[in-house]
């Protein structure tokens, strides 16, 4: 009988070193800021393991890493990236620039090409020239710099929405006008929140809480509108000039 376990011979059930822990992450780059966000639910199958397990991590004052996929691999990967960044700091007396972190992440991921970290990474922050940057990776290290990217369980729900609202895909500007190349923070933040409320509505693995990291370049104009927001907290670590904020919001828990 197909699909039934044979009783006459022993079953070979080998150990599966991977699982999926749900959740979604997202990052959008502005002209002089970057927003990196993730929900805080961690699940396995239909069980919610915890309503608060962060997926977004401040690496330096110019780089924030969001990690999504297999949580154990994700946490270990962040731990190892941080270790390498600390070594760099001890060797060079400065924080590693974000494009170097991006290349570092590629080599670290590709080093495990034949037993991959089962994680999708999105690195967001400020480039050395002061522009907002988003780098997205696949589990084995392929990466590119982009203006916006969603990953994780609800990637398919969020990414086309972002294509439309960030890249203005399938839209034409009114005659004699042009779409802005970069959106202001006051436009980006509501889009991030809307993306996650939409994903929460239609995807069971997304919800509980939302953590939005905002990285500002030196003298970023986005600072003014940011500090008056509800639930905003500054997590800047140095006096280099870049500033990091985190905004926490509730998402539906069902």
């Amino acid at each position: 009988m197909p699909g039934m376990v044979s009783m006459t011979q022993p079953i070979q059930q080998s150990f599966n070193p991977y699982t999926e822990n749900g959740g979604t992450i997202l990052a959008i780059a502005g002209a002089d800021f970057t927003v990196i966000a993730g929900d805080t639910r961690q699940s396995e199958g239909y069980s919610i393991q915890t309503r608060y397990a962060p997926k977004v991590f401040r690496l330096t004052d110019k780089a924030v890493l969001a990690v999504n996929g297999f949580a154990a691999d994700g946490n270990m990967f962040v731990k190892k990236v941080r270790q390498r960044l600390e070594w760099y700091r001890h060797a060079h007396a400065k924080d590693m620039p974000i494009r170097a972190i991006a290349r570092l992440i590629q080599t670290m991921l590709y080093a495990r090409r034949f037993f991959p970290y089962y994680v999708y990474n999105i690195l967001g922050g400020i480039e050395e020239d002061g522009t907002g940057a988003v780098y997205s990776f696949d589990p084995v290290g392929s990466y590119e710099r982009e203006a916006c990217r969603a990953a994780g369980a609800a990637q398919s729900l969020v990414q086309p929405f972002l294509d439309n609202q960030i890249y203005f895909k399938n839209q034409t500007p009114a005659a004699g006008t042009a779409f802005p190349k970069h959106l202001p923070l006051s436009t980006v933040l509501p889009l991030v929140i809307d993306s996650f409320t939409s994903a929460t509505e239609r995807h069971i693995e997304v919800g509980d809480g939302l953590e939005i990291y905002v990285v500002l370049a030196r003298n970023s104009t986005a600072l003014a509108g940011l500090q008056s927001l509800r639930g905003v907290q500054e997590v800047t670590g140095t006096n280099d000039g870049e500033r990091v904020f985190v905004i926490r919001r509730d998402l539906k828990k069902d």
Partner: peptide, 11 residues
């Protein structure tokens, strides 16, 4: 369908 859900929910 999954993409349609995401965009429609937003728009």
């Amino acid at each position: 369908s999954s993409k349609l859900y995401g965009v429609a929910e937003g728009l």
